[in-house]
């Protein structure tokens, strides 16, 4: 049996690339054939974007390009030049988490957490467009994301809860809130 492998070198030539990632402008040289996933992980430093399959089947690498969910493993970085890219790291506002981040933690939407970034960005786009999605709409939105731990049920629960928060305008807990006092019982 002969195994034919394509030569990997010399690599593609470098080309300048600029985009806004999570609100911050980046201007870096990339290889002209670089995949967005690699640029985000290796060069921009967004390790929250996960590589699960490289084939667009698992959805772990989903990011938002100008607000639309895209699979970064199937996107050439040059395709999205000058775009606004949002990764999971860009969903929270400082210490204030996005409602879907809060509810994912609270309702068990995340177990091992590896698929979580992909789900979160896809769901945040859904909620942006439609703050009160029906169950069918939720399912359609996340059909491209695979989760091996939760069986999806608790993810759907989390989306419903996040939707309630968005609709009711409930104040999101601030994660910098005061922590427990080990010395209680002596109020002013």
């Amino acid at each position: 049996m002969t195994v034919v492998r394509l030569p990997m070198l010399p690599g593609a030539e470098k080309t300048p690339w600029a985009a806004s990632v999570n609100g911050k402008d980046h201007s870096i040289p990339i290889e002209s054939n670089a995949i967005l996933l690699d640029v985000l992980r290796d060069q921009v430093g967004n390790l929250g974007v996960k590589r699960g399959c490289d084939l667009g089947t698992c959805g772990c690498c989903a990011v938002l390009i100008d607000g639309q969910p895209r699979l970064s493993c199937l996107t050439l970085a040059r395709e999205v030049e000058k775009s606004e890219i949002t990764t999971v790291e860009g969903l929270s506002d400082g210490h204030h988490l996005h409602p879907i981040q809060e509810t994912f933690a609270e309702y068990g939407g995340s177990q091992c957490g590896f698929c979580t970034p992909g789900f979160l960005v896809v769901i945040s786009a859904l909620l942006e467009e439609n703050p009160q999605p029906s169950d069918a709409e939720i399912k359609t939105a996340i059909e491209g994301n695979l989760c091996r731990c939760t069986g999806y049920q608790q993810i759907v629960d989390s989306v419903r809860a996040a939707s309630e928060i968005l609709v009711a305008g409930k104040v999101i807990q601030n994660s910098t809130d005061q922590k427990s006092d080990p010395h209680p019982g002596f109020g002013e």
């Binding site: 994912f104 957490g113 994660s175």
Partner: peptide
Amino acid sequence: DSKWKVTGQ
């Protein structure tokens, strides 16, 4: 550790 997971950290 869920807050670590949902923030990509």
